[in-house]
C-alpha cells in the first residue's frame, strides 16, 4: 500500500449541505464535476436516493463529493447491500413490524466506508432523512467511516467556507451540554431552504469547484399512519428543486418549486 501512487485518486470537487429540523430535513448538493481547472460537466447529480422501486418512500438520501469513481462505486455498493437488505428488511419487517430506518442506513454506510479503511473510498458524505420519531436527522462522515449525528453539516470543497456560516446562523447547542440538547435547527423549513440557497450562492463566489444551482432533496414528516404493509411506518414527503436556470430569478434567487411525491 505504501507503493500506491497518487494517480488512483482524483478530486472531482463538489459541495453537499444538509440541515435537519424538528420534522423535516433538507439535503442539497451542487452539480459540477471538475478536475483541476477543467470542468467535466455542469449537470452531474451527487445525490443518490438510496431507495429502489420496491421502496419508493425511503427515508434517507446520500449526498457525496470527492472522487466520482468512488462515489459511484459506493452508491452501487450500498444499493447492492440494500437489495440484500431488502430481503433482510422483509425479515426485519415481519419480526419488528417496521421498515429499516435512516439511523440503520447511517451505520451501514459507516461500516461500508470502514471496510475499505486501507484503500478508502475518497468520498465525503452526508446522509439526510427522517429518524424513527419522524425528526429530521443528518449524519456526517469522513472518508474512512467515522460518523456522527448532527443537526446540520456540510462536506466537500466548499465545506470549509460554508460550515462557519451554518454555525453562526443555526447556533446549535454545544454537544458538551448536559443533559444533551436536541441539535435540530429551530428554523422553519422555508428558512432552512433559503439558508442553503444563500450558502451555495456564497460558496460559488469563492470555490471554483462549486456551481450555483444545487439539487435539493426535502423530507417532511407528516404523520404516523398505518397500512397493511408497513403498520407503523410514517409517510414522508420528498421534493427537489430542479436544476433549471429558468427557475432562477436574479432578484429573488431561486424560486423553490416543489415536486411533491406522496407515497
Amino acid at each position: 500500500m505504501a507503493l500506491r501512487g497518487d494517480w488512483v485518486y482524483e478530486n472531482n470537487g463538489g459541495t453537499c449541505v444538509a440541515i435537519a429540523g424538528s420534522d423535516y430535513c433538507v439535503v442539497a448538493a451542487d452539480t459540477r464535476l471538475s478536475v483541476g481547472y477543467s470542468i467535466h460537466t455542469r449537470d452531474y447529480s451527487k445525490i443518490c436516493n438510496l431507495c429502489d422501486l420496491l421502496f419508493p418512500a425511503d427515508k434517507c438520501v446520500l449526498a457525496s463529493s470527492g472522487f466520482q469513481g468512488d462515489m459511484k462505486a459506493l452508491q452501487k455498493n450500498l444499493a447492492a447491500k440494500h437489495l440484500v437488505s431488502v430481503h433482510l428488511l422483509h425479515i426485519y419487517q415481519h419480526q419488528h413490524n417496521k421498515q429499516m430506518s435512516c439511523p440503520a442506513m447511517a451505520r451501514l454506510l459507516s461500516n461500508t466506508l470502514y471496510y475499505k479503511r486501507f484503500f478508502p473510498y475518497y468520498t465525503f458524505n452526508i446522509l439526510g432523512g427522517l429518524d424513527n420519531e419522524g425528526k429530521g436527522c443528518v449524519y456526517t462522515y469522513d472518508a474512512v467511516g467515522s460518523y456522527e449525528r448532527v443537526g446540520y453539516s456540510c462536506q466537500g470543497t466548499g465545506g470549509a467556507l460554508i460550515m462557519p456560516v451554518l454555525d453562526n446562523q443555526l447556533k446549535s447547542p454545544s454537544p458538551l451540554l448536559l443533559p444533551a440538547r436536541d441539535a435540530v435547527t429551530p428554523l422553519s423549513e422555508s428558512e432552512a431552504v433559503d439558508l442553503v440557497k444563500d450558502v451555495f450562492a456564497s460558496a460559488t463566489e469563492r470555490d471554483i469547484y462549486t456551481v450555483r444551482f444545487p439539487i435539493f432533496f426535502f423530507f417532511q414528516f407528516l404523520a404516523f399512519c398505518e397500512s397493511d404493509i408497513f403498520p407503523t411506518q410514517q409517510h414522508a414527503y420528498s421534493s427537489r428543486v430542479l436544476n433549471d436556470p429558468n427557475e432562477y430569478d436574479p432578484l429573488i434567487g431561486f424560486r423553490l418549486s416543489y415536486r411533491i411525491m406522496h407515497k
Binding site: W7, V8, Y9, E10, N12, L33, V35, S38, I39, H40, T41, D43, Y44, F67, Q68, G69, K72, A73
Partner: peptide, 25 residues
C-alpha cells in the same frame, strides 16, 4: 458519455478527451 483512466465517468451533450477538454469544449 465519457470514461477516464481511473473510472471517472459522466454524460453530457458534448465530450472530449485530453487536450480537447481545454481547447475544444
Amino acid at each position: 458519455g465519457m470514461v477516464g483512466m481511473i473510472g471517472t465517468h459522466y454524460e453530457d451533450n458534448h465530450v472530449a478527451t485530453g487536450f480537447g477538454n481545454h481547447l475544444a469544449r
